[in-house]
Design a protein around this nucleic acid. Structure first.
Lengths: 143, 143
DNA sequence: AAGTTAATCACCCGAAAGTATGATTCTGCG
DNA sequence: CGCAGAATCATACTTTCGGGTGATTAACTT
């Protein structure tokens, strides 16, 4: 960028120098206005193209694309009024944990987990944990 | 591209017109050479930038990427000695069906489905249907 | 201060899932 | 033909799930 500006300025200076040089060297003071204008127009157009190319050129961006891209739709979660805790339970269900194992992992009682799963199922409108997994995946709530 | 060239030409014509107009309208024939040159330089630089931008800009390429490509690894199925029927049951489990629903769909008894699921679980080395889903997906036996 | 939501836990009961064992029928293959 | 593997079904038993109801507490929102 800075380099581009410097080069551009140098080119400008060179142009002025060349013009002046031609003017005084050959005493061709009567070169028509149109000639100068045309010359300048052509040169600066070229310069503009070059500068614009340099300045607007975007560096190629390398994007890592995961095999299974997954972005949780939090809006949908809110729409379904699924709480954080319920979502945690959902994730563990999808990993294949039993209610007891979930209870152990979250340091709550089995009954609490059952309550969460029950509420979760009614919010997802399903009857079984396997249905919950399937539905959550299709709704992009789970990878 | 063609459009760009046309616009560029029009802009050029407009510039000449404006210059001539200024020249004759106000009789300011003595505007310095440097002023014209500067004006022209600035305008054509801008034009050059714009034209270069238009001409070198690449159109974004849209690539269709399948959301979830899935190819069943039949060799792995054979390795695990999972039979066709057992795989059918596995698919239905992953869809969220209960054993009874699977029995109805396959026109067999509930006990038969239970036998299949039991054998399936031991072959997948899991204890629950939710684990079976998770494991089958990670093994690419299921989408 | 009163109301709302989330999170927690309990108890009960029935349904579903899973385990173990054994048996019968069917089918493809050497 | 005979046998192995697959598919079928049964019975009995244990574990896990899921539904319903009710209650308490903490953290908010109004």
């Amino acid at each position: 960028m800075r380099r581009t500006v410097v080069l551009y300025s140098l080119a400008l200076a060179a142009l002025v120098f060349i013009l002046k040089f031609l003017e005084y060297r050959y005493f061709v003071r009567d070169l028509s206005m149109e000639f100068y204008l045309g010359l300048v127009a052509v040169m600066f157009t070229a310069l503009g193209v070059w500068a614009g190319y340099k300045l607007t050129r975007k560096k190629p961006v390398v994007v890592e694309v995961p095999v299974r891209s997954f972005v949780l739709d939090e809006g949908l979660l809110a729409q379904l009024t699924i709480s954080k805790r319920e979502y945690e339970v959902l994730e563990l269900i999808a990993k294949g944990l039993s209610n007891q194992e979930i209870a152990n992992k979250l340091f709550v009682s089995l009954n609490t987990v059952k309550t969460h799963t029950s509420n979760l199922f009614s919010k997802l409108d399903v009857k079984r944990r396997t249905q919950a997994i399937e539905k959550a995946q299709s709704l992009r709530l789970l990878p």
